[in-house]
Structure formats: C-alpha cells, structure tokens
Design a protein around this nucleic acid. Structure first.
Lengths: 243, 243
DNA sequence: GGGTTCTAATTGTCTGGCATTTGAATCGCA
DNA sequence: TGCGATTCAAATGCCAGACAATTAGAACCC
C-alpha cells in the first residue's frame, strides 16, 4: 500500500487509489483508524494538502469518515446500504440525463428489474409494505395532485413493492433504476383518465401482492409497463405534432 | 449556487454539494467549464486549497474532469456508462463484504436480476454476445483451470448474457450485482463434477439464447441458481462440520 | 506564410502557520 | 479518596503565499 511511483499523474489520485485498494483487499478493516494526515504525508513523501485531497476523494465515496479532536482522524467507514443508495440514485439519474437514454429504454430496464422483485415481494412482503402501497394508491387518487406529486407517489409505491422482496441487494440496485426514472416521468402530463388507469393497475398489483400471487403480480406489472410506454409514446407524438 | 453559510460542516463538502446540485439541476451543462479555482475561491470566500478539496470530491465521482494549461480548468464530465460501471462494481463489492450479506441473499438478487435480462437477451443478442458466451464456456471446460479463473470466466459469461439484452441501463445495474458476487463465489471450491454441471447449464443457456427462446433461457437460469445455491450450501455445511 | 519563441493562464504541489475540536491527563478541593 | 474543573496535546479544518509544470494562443522572425 505504500508504493507510489513518482509518475506523471495526480499524486492525490494515486494515493486515494492505494488506500482504496487497501480497503477493498481487506488490508484496512472497518472502523480502523488510518494514520494521521501528517504521517501519511511522510509515508508517501508528499505534503499534507496532497494527502488531504486524497482523503476527500475517499470521503466523497463514503469509504472513510473523518473526526476532529484528540482521538480523531480518518476511519474506514462501514459502507451501509442506506448510505450507498443516495449516491446510486444520483449517479443513475445523471447517467440517464447525460446520455440521451430514451424513455423506452429506461422504462424497459426499470420494469424488467421490477419484475425480478415481484415474485419475492409477493412471497415475503410485510404488512408494512402493503400498507405503504395502499397509502400511496390513496394519495394518487386525490384530486388536485400535481403531476410531479403523482410521479413522486408512483416512485414511493414501486419502492415499497421492491422493498417487499426483503432483499437489501435488490432494494439497493432498484433504488437507482426507479428513482432515476422520475425526471423522465415528470416530462409526461397525466390526464384524469391516465391516472385512473394507472391507479387501477397499482391496485391490481397491491391485490396480487397481498394474495401472495407472484404470477398475477408479474402480469399486472407487465400491463403497467405497456400502459406507461403507450402513454409516453402518445404524449411525445402529440408534442412532436404540435411543434 | 453561490450560497454557502458559515455553518458548522466542512466547507469543502458544502462547496462540493453546491456544485453537484448545480450540475444535477442543469445549471451547469456537459463540457461546460467551471470558473478557475481562484475565481471559485473568491466566489465562495474561501481559500484555494479548500476549493481544490471540493473539486477533488467531485472528481472522485467522475462529475468533473480537470485539465492543466492555459485553457485548462475543471469541466463538467459526461458521465458515461463505461465510467460509472467500475464505481458501481466497487461499491457493490464493498457493500457485500462489509455488511455480512449471506451468500444466499446475494445469489438470489443476482439471479433475480439476471432473469430480468434473459428474455431481452434471447430476443436481441448479437453474434458477438453469443460468441463470447461460447468462448467462456470453452474456457471453463479447460482442465487445470484454477477456481478463481473459473469464477472469472463465469462472470464474463454472465456479463455477456446481460449485455445481450442491448439495454445499457440494465448492463450498468447488473454489472454491480454480477461482479460483486465474485468474491463470494471464490470462497467455494469446485469439484470436476460441479464444473461439469455448471458448464452443462451454461450450454443450455447459450443454446436457448441462440434459439431466441426466452422461456427456456429463464428455466436454465433458474436451474443454475438452484445448482449454485445447493453447491454453496453443501460446501459451507462441509466446512462447518470440519471445524 | 510558416515555423519558432514568448507569454499568460491554470492546475499541481509545497511550506508554514493558525484556528478549532476533543479526549485525556492533571490539578485542586472537599 | 473521590470528583469536578482546568489544562494540554493531538488531530483535523482552513488559510496565505509561493513555485513548478503544462498548455494554448499570441507575437515574432525568417
């Protein structure tokens, strides 16, 4: 971990990579304290600001945390699913917005992944998950809801479904896919009829999940995907025709 | 974006958050040049090293890139799927290793997600994907292959399957789930008989994908998951009994 | 006109220092 | 002896100033 050739590239990036590798390989374990900035500077033969830049890089990825004071320093962070999800969501959102991913492609990925969770959710969901889904359906049926609020509730509904699978790995992965769709969904205007159809399908999903019926859940999700794709297509077509 | 109260938390983190928000909200567009470090320092009323720490945080997330020289500076980066995948893999791997996720849970998530890609891969795979899958199967059947090399080939095979779906969003999400399993798979020893069974199932998958048969692909994937879970269970049970 | 040199702008890095926080040791006092 | 207040030391957070390295463009000369 000490190696650091006097090569061309950024020293702080090299140092950050060395420490990151040490963490990944198990050379540094969770909650272990790293040497102080001054000691690291001496080890790598660089100045303290350079070490600090390296540590900030790692902090940005939640790999370490810092603490001030006498017994302070940089500590290897336990990367929790809760901490990783916001980053995953941010990255996924930016990937979609910066790469001109079509609504169709993003929607397809989202529903394909969500269907992967459906049978598990039907088998394992707790009453809490079901209650959240019902509550979001109720919110979606409120009149006067803005399109954005409707989409936000839609996201909450689907995240409850995913969480119902009781698998943190799935919840983490899906968080990105589901949340990242929200900006795309916000480009769509929902008529009252559109909302009614979506709410009906949401109710179908909740019913199937409550009954523990994975196959029916799958079918309802597929129907919802078709509905969403059709809706988006008509909205975009109308917008293209108007301009 | 200029706001930055003299509050408690790290200035560099606040500045990084401000710039990140500007990028996410569209206030800064791709390839746009940020003000120079000196200008940012003046804008936020902090010193240049503090600004630099903030920029390094953003660079660690691939949100910006820096360039030296006369027309250099920090530029908003186009976050590509290729650049985001390694980070996703690192994060997923650490999440599994630091949170005592059981083999069963991780394996379940991986195959659930992979099944989500199967029908699409069967419909859209190119000859390239198919050739990669066949090549990896061939490699797996080589005698004298170490367990680690066998696992690495397994990962390559499954990534080719996922990429066959032709959906970058899926490929990105699945990269984390598939690669992160590798350290867990490396804890397993494979007998010749185990390998033969896995290779046979891989062949079934490749055949089904070649035939464009999504349902058969799904069935083969499910059989492979069962095989993998059983194998892991017996290995862990034997290990527990021996100690 | 083309090639060369110069210049300015910008990032990368270092030195040295001060402020702030925080835990622990020390001291004073009952 | 026991306990609270004080002091101290270590560490991070932040800053000012400076120099080196790099790079693109301008100026210049032939």
């Amino acid at each position: 971990m000490k190696i650091d050739p006097d090569n061309p590239a950024d020293l702080s990036a090299q140092i950050a990579a060395a420490i990151r590798d040490a963490i990944i390989s198990g050379g540094l374990i969770v909650d272990e304290r790293l040497p102080s900035e001054a000691e690291l500077a001496e080890q790598f033969d660089v100045s303290r600001p350079t070490v600090r830049e390296a540590l900030k890089r790692l902090a940005a990825q939640s790999l370490i945390r810092t603490q001030r004071g006498a017994t302070g320093g940089a500590f290897v962070n336990r990367l929790s699913f809760e901490a990783a999800q916001p980053q995953q969501i941010t990255t996924s959102t930016l990937l979609l917005s910066m790469n001109a991913v079509s609504f169709e492609t993003a929607c397809e990925a989202r529903y394909a992944l969500e269907r992967a969770c459906a049978p598990l959710a039907a088998a394992r969901r707790t009453p809490d998950h079901l209650a959240t889904m019902r509550a979001e359906i109720h919110r979606q049926s409120q009149p006067g809801l803005t399109d954005e609020a409707f989409c936000a509730s839609d996201v909450a509904f689907h995240r409850a479904l995913v969480d119902g699978a009781g698998n943190p790995v799935l919840s983490y992965q899906l968080a990105g896919a589901v949340e990242a769709m929200q900006p795309l969904m916000n480009m769509i205007t929902f008529t009252a009829r559109d909302r009614a159809r979506i709410i009906a399908l949401h109710t179908d999903i909740a019913d199937a999940v409550e009954a523990g019926d994975g196959a029916t859940t799958l079918a309802a999700l597929t129907a919802l995907e078709t509905e969403t794709q059709d809706l988006a297509q008509s909205v975009f077509a109308a917008r293209a025709a108007r301009s």
